[in-house]
Design a protein around this nucleic acid. Structure first.
Lengths: 121, 121
DNA sequence: CTGATAGTTAAGCATTTACTTTAGTATCAT
DNA sequence: ATGATACTAAAGTAAATGCTTAACTATCAG
């Protein structure tokens, strides 16, 4: 089991490549084989498989081989980790802005002008 | 102006490093100078500045130099792009699951579970 | 069995990344 | 003016990344 930081590293790293994001987009519309994933991409099959390994390691995609075809699907809830991190940043930042708003409203309730220059920035 | 794909590349790439995420976390609690950002990190100051350049290029952070100190702050709405992409994937995937649920319910309404006993045969 | 399909393994290579050190340049306090 | 502070610029490096090609292994259809 990987720790939180490493999981986020792998997840964001996996999403940082347009081909890999393309694969995730394709897979969120339904499962696909490796060759199906490869078809729209301008690269060799081994390259696609390597991208796929990155996606699997990140927990975004799960694959399963039956016969000679490997079927790839979205790992449900795989994106949750990234989503959570982003939401935490947003709320921390928004809460801070609220406090700042309170502070400004309290300190200078009437001044929308710079008292030095008399200008509105 | 950068296109959508490149912006996502830069954003996710920027978030894929724990030091940079640490800086973003610090900055979402309020502005900081370069040295303040560097303090908790086990690396040289130039390294921190390089990370900062990645964050600026990604649109997550804005910096401004006054006198000899460069003040760094979160770029409001910088995370929106990543957030939007993730949400789009989630909804696409969830909608698909709904359809699949409909399909299963229609095709085999009685075979997955006995609604009386709750048992799976 | 034979050939085609689907994927795998391994090795190599150019580029990018994440640092480092060393040597600066402004700015500020005294 | 002098020294300390806060960066900045440049160059070098080890490791990671994103590919490639070539050769190989299963599986399936006829």
């Amino acid at each position: 089991m990987l720790n939180y930081q490493t999981s986020l590293d792998l997840m964001f790293q996996a999403l940082a490549d347009p081909s890999r994001r393309g694969m995730v987009e394709r897979l969120s519309r339904g499962p696909a084989s490796v060759s199906e994933l490869a078809r729209p991409l301008a690269m060799s099959l081994p390259a696609v498989v390597q991208h796929l390994q990155v996606l699997e390691a990140s927990g975004l995609v799960r694959t399963e081989k039956v016969g000679r075809v490997r079927t790839c699907r979205i790992e449900p809830g795989g994106l949750q980790l990234a989503e959570r991190w982003i939401n935490e940043r947003r709320t921390t930042w928004e809460r801070r802005l609220d406090c700042l708003g309170d502070y400004l409203a309290e300190t200078a309730p009437t001044t929308s002008k710079d008292p030095e220059t008399g200008e509105t920035p």
